[in-house]
């Protein structure tokens, strides 16, 4: 599981995840992601490279969304692959955080908060 972070011209933080967001993957990114959401306000989590997600991955996203929300910021999810989108939908977490099929739509949503 890899996390690549980029600051966009719009002021939104683009965080791209790649790999399996299973227990092992979630354990690998939890600490760097927690550090990141502590200092950012508006973030798009790009899930285009995530090939698998289970409940520990959902938990990681929820913790990040909660931390940003508590600081007046916002996390939105972008570009999930179909099977990952299925997990987000079934859990209700995709709708709760906000999931968008394109990066542009996700950035617009992050800026609208």
């Amino acid at each position: 599981m890899d996390l690549v972070v980029e600051e966009m011209a719009s002021g939104v933080t683009h965080a791209a995840l790649t790999g399996r967001l299973d227990i092992e993957g979630a354990q690998k990114i939890d600490i760097p992601l927690n550090a990141l959401v502590g200092v950012r306000r508006r973030m798009v989590m790009d899930l285009g490279g995530v090939t698998f997600m289970a409940s520990m991955g959902l938990r990681t996203l929820m913790v990040a969304a909660r931390a940003l929300s508590a600081n007046g910021g916002k996390l939105v999810l972008a570009n999930p692959q179909p099977n990952v989108a299925k997990v987000l939908a079934e859990s209700g977490i995709g709708d709760l955080i906000g999931t968008y099929p394109s990066l542009d739509d996700a950035v617009a949503a992050a800026l609208s908060a």
Binding site: A54, S55, L58, R59, M62, V63, A65, R66, S69, V87, E90, S91, G92, I93, L96, I97
Partner: peptide
Amino acid sequence: PPPSLDDMHEGGQGLRL
């Protein structure tokens, strides 16, 4: 229960899946 940004407990998602 359904997930909530205000609820610190994420448990139960595995069962739901």
